[in-house]
Amino acid sequence: MSARSEKTIVDIAAELQLSVSTVSRALNDHPNISLKTKERVRKMARKLGYRPNAMAAGLRNNKSRTIGLIVPRISMFFPAAITTVMQNKLQEYGYNLIICQSNDSLEQEIALVNTLYSARVDGLAVSATLYTTDFSHFDIFKQQNIPLVFFDRVPKDYNVKVIKGDDFRGGYLATEHLISKGCKDIVHISGPLTCNLYSERLAGYKDALQKHKLPYKKQRVFFHELTRDNALQTAARIFEKKPYPDGIFATNDTTAITLLEYCRNNGIQVPQQCRIIGYSNDPRTEIVTPSITSVDQHPVTMGERIVAALMELIQARHPSSYKHSQEIVPIELVERDSSAGGAKRKK
């Protein structure tokens, strides 16, 4: 059986005995074409199974009306929430979104950058992998004046638009909150320090300890990818022997939820014996028992700002001529039962 042949506007024109240009204008809702002719053309297009070739149209006008998005994992709450906001906002501007995930693989990220460049996206938004320290594979977008915005996981020294959360303040507020509840021995569970998120949250943790005259203990700080399996291994190390910590600041909610489960399964009462704080305000933190205190990163605000920045750069004549600029999205500590109770420490 022969492959199905793709119908074109030439086929529609032949069936209706119209010119190709008339069919093209009718399909594009040109004001000079009558409503009757437009309806005839659309009806025949449906009958023939005609599909517009958006790629070919993009080649003609040098606009694909698509934005590329690279996130580490679409399964994580924060990037998933941002993706939803971006897709909805971009549709308001008449743009579609191509969503890609790097799975925290630098090799995959490089491949996706090349794929999206070949797909002629009109702009690119990126949350980098945990291990991206050399961002030169993004240079092709800058060289070709294609708008490029980094968010959340961002480069430190690369001339692009950056939109990120206030991770230092988030780390500081989380730690200070535990201290205000009477905690004196606070564990910090961090991701790899090659990623800006975790280096800044660690700095906030250290600063809060120093301000409240508590020692920084290397044996109370753990670094690894923030997965459930890694969290269980770390929990076993934390509670291997006494004295147990009286507070834990985990830099993502998956880790905080896993620690809560570990404590429950091992007879460690939360918050009576150990208080726990997570990060991102994942909806799961509200429905577990006890509910988990977390840091809200406001993904709706960040998603809206990413789209606004892309639209501003698309409208600019030379979008890559700008220098490094950084926009900080405020964070907010959301207190719940996992850190409840306790008297404030004297300062």
Rank of each mutant, 00 (worst) to 15 (best):
K218R: 13
R51G: 10
Q233C: 10
V187T: 10
Q315H: 13
V270M: 06
E327Y: 14
E312P: 01
Y279S: 06
D157K: 11
L226K: 07
P155A: 10
F141K: 01
A235T: 02
K211M: 15
F151Y: 03
D185K: 14
F223A: 15
V71R: 01
K38E: 05
R345E: 15
M55I: 14
I98N: 01
S325V: 14
S325A: 12
V307S: 01
I248K: 06
K242M: 15
I189P: 09
N114D: 12
A80C: 14
P283S: 03
S136P: 03
Y322L: 15
G191C: 02
R4S: 14
L48D: 04
R345I: 12
K164V: 09
L313N: 00
Y262M: 07
K43M: 13
T255M: 05
V85L: 04
K181F: 03
I74V: 10
G204R: 00
H212N: 14
F78E: 01
Q108Y: 04
S180Q: 13
R237C: 11
Y93F: 10
I287D: 08
S180K: 11
F239G: 01
R46W: 10
R42P: 06
V270N: 00
E225V: 10
R275Y: 03
I276A: 08
A343L: 14
E6R: 14
E15L: 07
V300G: 13
F138D: 02
I33M: 07
A81R: 00
R284C: 15
R264W: 08
S24Q: 04
D253E: 05
Q269F: 08
Q101Y: 04
T254F: 09
E107V: 02
K43H: 13
A57V: 14
N266H: 15
T194P: 00
